[in-house]
């Protein structure tokens, strides 16, 4: 089986400081991988390198494209990479307002990717937008409201709908539950888990919340100071941490 995404020895430095280095892993179709670590451990840098937002200083990110098979996305041309970015890839930002157009209605936000890939039938676009609002548990009568009129949790769900509408195969998520209160987080996680399973998505989730990876991720990678400290099956890593830092991380979670 060909991995959907094969990351080989990715390195990104900011001058002499290390962003992340020596990161390698394979992600198979339908698999969800979590990346955890403390602030400044290089997890967001890594995610941005993988998603093509940052140019890595070394290494390869090989994606199994629908048409041409495995292609290194670091060396592919920018139009191709941006095309991937709005078809087969999706990126869910931590702050919904980074990923949404706040001055455009919910329907327009969801429709943007459809129109970007050439959809030109208003009725169809609107039907799909309403369908997706339903799937992320937003009422259909909010389709013409702007995201500014939405709560934080709704904005985040709208961002997810906007990203998934073109049926991507790989979703990058940067702290998707950050900044939401716990009950809203729980609903969002439930929704995400449902969508990932239903659509057979592969996902890479960056978070510092161990509960999120416990719920969503099949595999886990723990990062520390730009290096991978430990990786393995989620339950294995969380229940039997080997690396000193992972042990610290697991024991830092408050038990309520």
């Amino acid at each position: 089986m060909t991995p959907l995404l094969s990351v080989q020895n990715i390195r990104k430095t900011y001058g002499t400081r290390i962003g992340c280095t020596g990161v390698s892993f394979d992600l198979y179709p339908g698999e969800v991988m979590g990346i955890v670590g403390e602030s400044g451990s290089g997890k967001s840098t890594l995610l941005n390198c993988l998603a093509g937002h940052l140019e890595p200083d070394g290494g390869r990110v090989v994606f199994d494209t629908r048409t041409d098979g495995p292609v290194d996305t670091v060396t592919m041309s920018e139009p191709e990479r941006r095309m991937l970015g709005r078809t087969d890839w999706a990126f869910v930002h931590q702050h919904a307002r980074d990923g949404l157009r706040m001055s455009v209605s919910a329907g327009g936000n969801i429709g943007e990717r459809l129109m970007a890939v050439g959809d030109r039938h208003y009725g169809d676009i609107r039907d799909k937008a309403i369908d997706w609002l339903g799937r992320v548990e937003i009422e259909a009568n909010r389709v013409d409201d702007r995201p500014t009129a939405f709560s934080g949790g709704m904005q985040q769900r709208l961002q997810i709908a906007r990203n998934l509408v073109t049926g991507p195969r790989l979703v990058f998520m940067d702290e998707p539950t950050g900044g939401l209160d716990v009950s809203v987080q729980a609903r969002l996680l439930d929704l995400l888990r449902g969508l990932v399973r239903e659509m057979g998505l592969s996902a890479i989730i960056v978070t510092h919340d161990l509960a999120v990876v416990r719920l969503l991720a099949d595999r886990l990678m723990v990062m520390k100071d730009g290096h991978v400290a430990e990786s393995g099956l989620t339950d294995q890593v969380l229940d039997d941490p080997q690396h000193a830092y992972t042990q610290l991380l697991v024991s830092s979670v408050l038990q309520v």
């Binding site: 209605s105 329907g107 327009g108 429709g111 943007e112 990717r113 129109m115 970007a116 030109r120 013409d144």
Partner: peptide, 12 residues
């Protein structure tokens, strides 16, 4: 695609 978003907003 963004240009059509504006027209979409008009119609909606």
């Amino acid at each position: 695609g963004l240009m059509h978003v504006k027209l979409y907003e008009d119609i909606s």
